[in-house]
Write a protein that binds this DNA or RNA. Structure first.
Length: 283
DNA sequence: AACAAGACCTGCATGC
DNA sequence: TGCATGCAGGTCTTGT
């Protein structure tokens, strides 16, 4: 599921229900995710206050510490199939299959919540690093710019795409260049920008990159808004965080009519991933 | 160096 | 119904 907008939505939901609270319990499944969850994560987090929730690319960063000083940052990635559920403690059901991390949090208003990370495929993972050291962390230190941040521009893309013969679709998925775009929003952004996913990254003009920059930001912001909208209803009855009622133009719509020209949407495979596009509207 | 392919996992839809 | 196949929103490692 999770690309940047979904990760942002999950981050906000955790913030809404746990920010400022104290971690009273930590349980883990004992199963290895992308890496083992730190064996002593219980000892590392129990008793700490959750000071801040941040996002870097597709990673959620949770700053925690004793009292008012943050000391550690929990780094969380949802992989392909990761999700988070949040319950009031007294309504928390039995742990479900593939629940890998379960945090009990006592908030300042004395309500107690349970935050559950579930990930069937276990491509996600959890790590802990010293507070302030996250930008140097090996998972994060090679990541490119935030597509919704100030450093992201057409000029930046032009420079980064220099000499890249790989298709632009694959290049948009390279987290070392832009952090947070995944398979769905890459196709969607290219559709909005009218750029063929097959085009070599280096061959896209600065002018068209201006359009692509806008398209990327539009698509991501809309998806975040959609997640945010459902977030306002707080947590769903099942504990699930209500992300996205997303309106997609091309992703998953092979053979369906293009919203612009009504010609059938095509599906191709690029570096092992499905890409969807309109061969008339995208050049 | 840059790129593609393979590997890691489980669950679900499809077709026989 | 059972079984095999292929596919899934990510990223790391290996091979060309």
């Amino acid at each position: 599921m999770p690309e940047l907008p979904e990760v942002e939505t999950v981050k906000r939901a955790i913030a809404d229900h746990a920010l400022g609270g104290e971690i009273t319990s930590v349980r883990q499944s004992g199963k290895t995710m992308r890496w083992p969850i730190p064996e002593d994560i219980d000892a590392q987090l129990t008793g700490l206050t959750i000071h801040n929730l941040r996002r870097r690319g597709k990673y959620i960063l949770m700053d925690c510490g004793k009292g008012k000083t943050a000391s550690v940052t929990m780094i969380l990635h949802l992989g392909m199939s990761g999700s988070v559920r949040i319950y009031p403690k007294r309504m928390t059901p039995e742990a479900q299959k593939h629940d890998h991390l379960i945090l009990g949090v006592m908030r300042q208003d004395q309500r107690e919540n349970t935050v559950v990370l579930n990930d069937p495929r276990r491509f996600g993972g959890v790590q802990i690093t010293a507070f302030g050291a996250d930008e140097q962390h090996p998972l994060i230190n090679k990541m490119g710019v935030e597509p919704l941040g100030n450093a992201f521009s057409a000029e930046y893309m032009k420079e980064q795409f220099q000499g890249k013969s790989a298709p632009i679709k694959s290049t948009l998925l390279d987290q070392r260049i832009i952090a947070g775009i995944g398979n769905i929003y890459a196709s969607e952004a290219l559709f909005l920008a009218g750029i063929s996913p097959k085009r070599a990254a280096r061959s896209v003009s600065l002018m068209r990159l201006e359009g692509l920059k806008d398209s990327i930001q539009t698509v991501l912001n809309k998806a975040i808004d959609a997640g945010g909208t459902s977030l306002r209803d707080h947590v769903q009855p099942g504990g699930e965080i209500g992300y996205f009622v997303q309106q997609l133009n091309v992703y998953g719509k092979e053979d369906q009519p293009c919203p612009n020209c009504a010609k059938p949407i095509k599906m191709i495979r690029q570096t092992g991933r499905a890409s969807f596009y309109c061969s008339d509207c995208q050049r």
